[in-house]
Write a protein that binds this DNA or RNA. Structure first.
Lengths: 231, 231
DNA sequence: GTCTATAAGAAGATAGAC
DNA sequence: GTCTATCTTCTTATAGAC
């Protein structure tokens, strides 16, 4: 533990010395590829259920079905695994959320945004929880990302929403707060899964549960913005 | 680390052997009281920013300004401190949220609920984050609480909301989902503070920020339920 | 590329002097 | 009640045999 260990004060950045692999001149290597993926999958499970500091390399190795030193051969240290995971999450995030233009329909666009975020909560709950823990813990790794890429992303969307408001195409609500609202309410189904399942007396989510929740959120949030819910 | 340590499989319960203090027949003891509070305050800070497993007793002791063994004299082990904190959080939670009756006004009641939860996010962000981490990590300590007290609490409120809907006093929305929505959207301002501050390019929240956010949420959620926003 | 063995340090907890 | 010294265990990470 003690993530703030001896090592470099040059953390805080995504992908440190990005050269983790030995520079052997071998093509991709099926085994290498497979092992890396297994390790990352295991690391995601462990990190997302205990956080970085409480997870041991041994636990990751056990779950990946490899000896610890093999894991450290691929990723040289614990931090590098964490960075790699964060990189993956942010990459996926950037890919999924397409652009928005002022001429788009507000209701359809917002409904689509809710849809996509709910789909991410459903299909990638571990990534969601990992991200949530990183943020709750003060975003030691992602702070930079938040105040650059993510800030810009929000600001751009907020400007389009503001244009919709100014042209009378939706009710007058704070666009940034609206994005926070969509973010938090959809995220919740992944992050607070245990709480929701306990309250609803279920063992696990079904696809239907998510559909129902997405419809609820779409209805309430769109109406709350003075919009008609699209078909 | 390794919270799933050697010890008893009889965890999962709030307050284990609740007798943590030496049974000396001394009245409350000002110093004892003060030290306990200092330790708990320090523990809340540490646990809420790193989680249980990654926090060391040494860190708590340092923050409390006491030697490690003195801390362990008061709480005998790390788990007991965590239990004590969770107990406090749940106790406060139960106190704050008063009852709701079918004859109450839906808009005022829901607005009040949003208000109170936002106030908790503002005044007790550490407790909020500690709770969030506990849930994200699968609620090892609070699982029991979730599927008993909290479940009942939600079910009771949901029944009242359903009555409001049935008597045409508000729009037809799933009451349980509505509670999830209020919960998640208000919680978010405490738990994802760093993200929000980064996006809004601020150093810290002001009281005004919370007022603004509370008004936004009240407006959107109430309107989303077909309610007029009360003054 | 894989894995055993181990170095070097830090963790939780306790004993016992003050 | 307080605190130093210490026991035991577990941690990350590396060295080096296969």
């Amino acid at each position: 533990m003690t993530e703030q260990n001896k090592s470099d004060p040059s953390r805080q950045q995504l992908s440190p010395p990005p050269s983790g692999q030995p520079k052997v001149k071998v093509r991709p290597g099926r085994i290498r590829q497979r092992n890396r993926e297994q390790i990352l999958a295991a690391a995601e499970k462990e990190f997302s259920s205990k956080g970085f500091g409480a997870t041991t390399v041994q636990q990751i190795a056990d779950r990946a079905g490899l000896p610890k030193s093999n894991v450290l051969y691929y990723f040289s240290n614990k931090k590098r695994m964490y960075y790699a995971l964060m990189d993956g999450i942010m990459g996926r995030w950037n890919d999924v959320f397409s652009n928005v233009r002022p001429e788009d329909d507000p209701a359809t666009t917002l409904a689509g945004f809710i849809q996509v975020k709910m789909e991410m909560s459903r299909t990638h709950p571990l990534a969601s929880r990992l991200f949530a823990m990183e943020i709750i813990q003060g975003a030691p790794v992602l702070k930079e990302y938040l105040s650059t890429s993510m800030k810009d992303w929000v600001r751009e969307r907020a400007m389009v929403i503001q244009q919709w408001i100014d042209t009378g195409r939706m009710g007058n609500v704070d666009p940034v707060q609206l994005i926070h609202l969509i973010w938090s309410s959809t995220q919740h189904y992944a992050d607070f899964q245990v709480q929701i399942l306990a309250i609803e007396e279920k063992e696990a989510y079904t696809k239907k549960d998510f559909k129902h929740a997405a419809e609820f959120l779409t209805q309430v949030i769109l109406r709350g913005c003075g919009l008609e819910v699209p078909e």
